[in-house]
Nucleic acid binder design. Structure first.
Lengths: 103, 103
DNA sequence: ATCGTACTACGAAGATCATCGAACTTCGAT
DNA sequence: ATCGAAGTTCGATGATCTTCGTAGTACGAT
């Protein structure tokens, strides 16, 4: 089984604007919440979303390129995880603030 | 001198999506940072921004309607303040996370 | 080698958004 | 009562974004 990480920004390349813009979209926020409940990561397809597969891929790419999540391949599947540590270092409290919000 | 508050959402009407969407725009983020440095509030016109007055008004409206800031009139001027307490209660850490970010 | 699965890339369509100028309102000062 | 300053609203324009279907890639299993 092959294992490869997808390109993503280094910690010091992450910009607040991009992160906030990435998080400020309902579908993407849903993805983040799903990821927060699964520290070991989730395959994209396993997240229940009201959009097609291609739209889902689009959102995951935006989140990854913003530096919010990390993705690596495992066979044909792509496992995503929240970049908790990086985000907590850059913007302490931001993630918790969002996740503790009333849904 | 007349003093009147402009309409804004109650604390329990504030939605995370709207807040994040409001914050995820460079000009608006700039406004937030200016407001964070002025606890007593700022008049819109005093904030240095790379946009015209009407665009500025547009952004301030979005921030107010999202529940991020409060605005009241003071004569012909409009003073805005961050809704720190409400935001901290709803999303503890979010604001600090954003404000401590490297610019 | 072929097939199915998981996912991505591309191009198009429609929606939403930022931006502006012009016209208008409101208030304080002359 | 008139003027100027501060700020808003409106309508238009161009940019950006979400969404989708289709076509394609990569991989594991048969």
């Amino acid at each position: 089984m092959t294992r490869k990480a997808l390109p993503q920004p280094e910690r010091d390349e992450i910009r607040v604007e991009s992160v906030l813009q990435a998080l400020g979209e309902p579908v993407r926020l849903q993805i983040i919440r799903a990821l927060a409940d699964a520290p070991e990561g989730i395959a994209c397809g396993e997240i229940e979303l009201p959009v097609t597969a291609s739209t889902r891929a689009h959102h995951l790419r935006i989140l990854r390129e913003a530096g919010v999540l990390s993705t690596h391949t495992e066979g044909t599947r792509r496992i995503s995880t929240l970049r908790r540590e990086d985000l907590e270092t850059l913007y302490p409290g931001l993630l918790t603030g969002i996740l503790t919000a009333p849904r």
